[in-house]
Write a protein that binds this DNA or RNA. Structure first.
Length: 441
RNA sequence: GCGGGUGUCGUACAACGGCUAGUACUCCAGUUUUCCAAACUGGCGAUCGGAGUUCGAUUCUCCGCACCCGCACCA
């Protein structure tokens, strides 16, 4: 099997309308990408597959779709505001970053003051220091027409937060008992220092997350359950081979501020094995903080045991764009057919942007075209994602459909006019068989 | 954010301090074609942005932007 190069994926994505650079005609903007006509179909199919497996296939998992901008106190409680407004200074030799206020020995966020105090200081390793700068990964905006500090708000840095603030609403309205989950698909925003690797590390990203609320004593069992869910989903629903997946357990030094345990599934992207899907034990970190900051009682009352406690949370979190890239990378193949190289996306049929492409064998035979249009309309009525293609010769159409992952090409020829059967050509095997079009509905 | 590299039609490449920036594929129109990128005719289509040097810049210089690679970052 040939190794997939990132340039091949980027080129295909552009050429065939999967992914474009955002505001390309103005030179782009680092960390932002647009999904084109085929990309949006593929990404929607991925999201629907996840939603079905996560929400609809579970009796006790409920979906929400929350606002991107929330009360800033939410991000104070979650630790995002405090944790990421720090003035940092870089050791110019080792490139390690230090809290500037700690090195200066003052309690201040004033950049001018800190720069002055650290002017002749060295890093703990004895090296010269760079300029003090504030690093905040959260994107800021202003709510209200007047831009003053009272209107400062943040674009959510993760979708998880509003799931915690809606915990009580969902529990109440759905009459939910532990364990139960809240799931959401939505955009999140982070001012990444260096967006990289095509759509892998971006500043506007989409997440699919589920927060599973449990009794504290169920944490190990539940953690295992959601790790396995992710592992199976990637293979069974997305068709990703086990050889391209790895487990990666976070050590204590690399864990998020909220997590007691974290396991990531790594996928073998063109750049190597990288993080795709995380399962985290967030304990009662979030609910406890929201109880503390909001003053609201978010404890759970178990009327069987008459206990009152703060639930623990197991989080399942995956990036949609990364999953999209993983699916594309996994599906991309270059193969030899009749002495020529073809590019083929071996997508699961459920994920492919188009399910069928319909063609008349010859474009200049009106009777074939008329019959093909009929078949096309019937298929499109049922499936929706059906493409008409009568450009060039039949081989060219097959190759074009291979490149966008259309699993089946339906061709109307002269025999169709006699017995009604059409040719269905399989993308992966290139084999053909004759069937009645009704069997495709 | 640091260091290195790259930026030319939709894609992949070529060329040049100076004639109309070339080729292949794609795309569009047509002829043709009875199943795997056939052929023919015609057509559309590009020098990342801004300054500077120069009689003249896509080419040289500077600044910016974007992408790729390494480091750092990734709550």
């Amino acid at each position: 099997m040939s190794e997939v190069k990132i340039e091949d994926i980027v080129s295909l994505a552009k050429r065939r309308g999967f992914v474009f650079q955002a505001s390309e005609i103005y030179g782009g903007l680092a960390g932002f990408w647009d999904y084109g006509p085929l990309g949006v179909e593929l990404i929607n199919n991925i999201k629907q597959t996840w939603w079905k497996a996560m929400v609809r296939n579970h009796d006790n998992i409920f979906g929400i779709d929350s606002a991107i901008i929330q009360n800033p106190k939410l991000w104070v409680a979650s630790g995002h505001v405090d944790g990421f407004n720090d003035p940092l200074v870089e050791d110019l030799v080792t490139k390690k970053r230090y809290r500037a206020d700690h090195l200066a020995g003052v309690d201040s966020n004033d950049l001018d003051e800190l720069n002055r105090l650290l002017k002749d200081k060295k890093s703990p390793e004895g090296n010269p220091l760079g300029e003090v700068r504030t690093f905040n990964m959260m994107m800021k905006t202003y709510v209200g027409a007047i831009e003053d500090e009272s209107g400062v708000a943040y674009l959510r840095p993760e979708t998880a937060g509003p799931m915690f603030t809606n915990y009580e609403n969902v529990r109440e309205t759905m009459r939910a008992k532990l364990p139960f989950g809240i799931a959401q698909i939505g955009k999140a925003f982070r001012n990444e220092i260096s967006p990289r690797d095509f759509i892998f590390r971006v500043r506007e990203l989409e997440q699919m997350e589920m927060q599973y609320f449990i009794r504290p004593e169920a944490q190990d069992e539940s953690y295992e359950q959601w790790r396995q869910f992710a592992w199976k989903f990637l293979q069974e629903e997305l068709g990703i081979g086990e050889a391209k997946l790895q487990w990666h357990e976070h050590g204590t030094d690399e864990r998020a501020h909220y997590a007691a345990a974290a396991h990531d599934i790594y996928f073998e992207f063109p750049q190597g094995f990288k993080e795709l899907w995380g399962t985290h034990n967030r304990t009662d970190f979030d609910l406890s903080n929201h109880i503390r900051v909001s003053g609201k009682d978010l404890q759970y009352f178990d009327d069987q045991t008459r206990e009152r406690f703060t639930p623990y949370v197991i989080e399942s979190s995956v990036g949609v764009g990364r999953m999209f890239l993983a699916v594309l990378t996994n599906a991309y193949h270059e193969e030899e057919v009749n002495g020529e190289t073809r590019v083929v996306l071996k997508l699961k049929p459920e994920l492919a942007p188009y399910r069928f492409a319909v063609s008349p064998l010859l474009k200049n035979k009106p009777e074939l075209v008329a019959k093909a249009e009929e078949v096309y309309r019937d298929l499109k009525k049922i499936h929706g994602n059906v493409m008409w293609d009568d450009n060039g010769n039949i081989g060219k159409r097959y190759r074009r459909q291979d490149e966008i992952g259309t699993p089946y090409c339906v061709v109307i020829d002269f025999q169709t006019l006699e017995d009604g059967t059409v040719t269905v050509r399989d993308r992966d095997t290139t084999e053909q068989k004759r069937v009645l079009p009704e069997t495709l509905l």
